[in-house]
């Protein structure tokens, strides 16, 4: 594993933990898109089905189990435990407009027409757009808590670092996975606007708020 991949995985883990911790500590999921979190739970579930079929490494298995568990815990906190604080009116992104096309694309464009491979492909495509309900929610309310922006930054950083990981792997291992690379590029691009706001506002101590 190269340095980019290593930092990326821990950045991803940090994002997940930051979100869980924020909701748990504040006893509230205000400003968090439950829809994005459900999509991430679907992403992890469909991608890590290989936990049942193959063992790659202790690291690989542990991270997968942690990601899946935290993801379901987050969904549980939002829709069950702290349901009263969930801002459903502002979480109005129509997820079927993401899931249906992404499902179709996964059936059409994949490495191998096999169940596990198609579900893996579906998870890669879905992950690339899963943050859209959250970004939509922020654009609708015009603001985000600073801790939420740290979450988004770690999540965006994770995918940006995976791009460097793939460049590294292409040069040193001759490895590349076109599906992951294209979806990863799309995913990273979606964060660019947010990265700009994060650097120009949040890192200078200001709250992230959008012009009306």
């Amino acid at each position: 594993m190269n340095i980019f991949r290593g930092i990326a995985d821990f950045s991803h883990l940090a994002a997940i933990i930051i979100l869980l911790h924020k909701i748990w500590k504040s006893r509230s999921c205000a400003g968090i898109s439950g829809k994005s979190q459900i999509l991430f739970a679907i992403v992890f579930t469909t991608r890590y089905l290989d936990l049942l079929t193959s063992f790659i490494s202790l690291y690989n298995t542990s991270m997968k189990v942690i990601y899946i568990s935290c993801s379901y815990a987050t969904v549980y906190l939002i829709y069950m435990k702290f349901r009263a604080t969930y801002d459903g009116n502002h979480d109005s992104f129509r997820v079927e407009f993401l899931v249906v096309p992404v499902g179709g694309l996964a059936v059409l464009i994949n490495h191998d027409f096999a169940l596990l491979e198609i579900l893996w492909t579906f998870s890669i495509y879905l992950e690339s757009v899963a943050i859209l309900p959250q970004l939509f929610m922020i654009s609708k309310t015009g603001e985000a808590e600073t801790i939420t922006t740290h979450y988004l930054f770690c999540l965006g950083l994770y995918r940006a670092l995976y791009l460097f990981n793939w460049i590294w792997r292409f040069y040193f291992e001759g490895f590349f996975d076109m599906i992951a690379i294209v979806a990863g590029l799309v995913q990273t691009v979606l964060y660019c606007d947010f990265f700009y706001l994060y650097v120009t506002k949040v890192l200078k101590g200001k709250k992230l708020s959008l012009p009306a």
């Binding site: 991949r5 290989d50 079929t53 790659i56 096999a114 169940l115 491979e117 992951a180």
Partner: peptide, 10 residues
Amino acid sequence: LDDDFEKDEL
């Protein structure tokens, strides 16, 4: 489920 399915990335 497929037997030869192996992805090392997360």
